[in-house]
């Protein structure tokens, strides 16, 4: 039986990287008494996969992992069992059953929403309306947003525009707050800081990542109508 788990990651847990989160969940699932399935072979491992790696330092309200279980209790009981095995800073919020032929979260990830909260020191010399005008100029009025991205094989030029689905800015306590919906997944993965770097360059500024708290809100799969559907809405509650 395929199960999708959604969790939040916050506080000091943002310093735990993706691979360590996987190790953390492997142990937590055992502590919670989830009847997880193991692979065949001499050294069996749990059938578990994460939707989209989250960078170190980033917090999130919408992280997903898929597991396969032999038997399961109800969603409510499983969430409660898992949360009793969680440290502060990780909270399981949903546990749903997927269809048997469902593809893994990892293979269907298409987009993610982010907030980038400016910390003290990130104040800009522009007013909010000036900034919003510049953002329109950058995102809506440019036909292409070419950037060069460093890869393992060298540098690669790509058009950022087609990979940004939404981009806006607001203000909170005089500090900038950016919202982004960007392409996510194994083929064209866009880190939000990459977009901000390009935008700040466009403004004639330098983007300093240390001055922002990046927060992921939700991760989506593409739906049939060309839109996006949260990964957590692709299965059913277990009664």
């Amino acid at each position: 039986m395929k199960i999708r788990i959604k969790f939040k990651k916050y506080g000091v847990m943002k310093f735990i990287g993706h691979l360590d989160m996987m190790r953390y969940f492997q142990k937590a699932v055992r502590r919670a008494g989830i009847d997880i399935a193991y692979s065949e072979g001499f050294s069996p491992h749990q059938v578990m996969s994460f939707a989209a790696p989250l960078g170190v330092g980033v917090t999130s309200d919408g992280e997903y992992l898929d597991i396969e279980v032999k038997t399961t209790k109800s969603s409510a009981e499983s969430i409660s069992a898992l949360n009793s095995a969680m440290v502060e800073g990780v909270e399981v919020v949903s546990y749903i059953k997927l269809e048997d032929h469902a593809k893994t979260a990892m293979s269907v990830v298409a987009a993610a929403d982010y907030y980038l909260y400016g910390k003290s020191g990130s104040e800009l010399t522009l007013t909010l309306s000036e900034l919003q005008a510049k953002l329109r100029e950058f995102y809506e009025e440019q036909a292409e947003i070419p950037i060069t991205k460093k890869t393992k094989k060298g540098e690669k030029t790509m058009d950022l525009k087609r990979l940004i689905y939404e981009f806006s800015v607001s203000e909170q306590d005089r500090l900038p707050v950016f919202f982004l919906k960007v392409c996510t997944g194994s083929t064209d993965n866009v880190k939000p800081q990459l977009v901000l770097e390009a935008f700040y360059k466009f403004l004639g500024f330098t983007f300093e990542e240390a001055l922002f708290q990046i927060h992921r809100l939700e991760v989506y799969a593409a739906d049939e109508n060309g839109g996006f559907r949260p990964l957590g809405e692709m299965g059913e509650e277990i009664e």
């Binding site: 506080g11 847990m13 310093f15 735990i16 330092g57």
Partner: peptide
């Protein structure tokens, strides 16, 4: 600070909070 923790190798060494 976040800045220091992001600058050093394996920040998990310094945050505690283990199970």
């Amino acid at each position: 600070s976040d800045e220091i923790l992001m600058a050093v190798d394996k920040p998990a060494r310094y945050i505690g909070n283990e199970w």
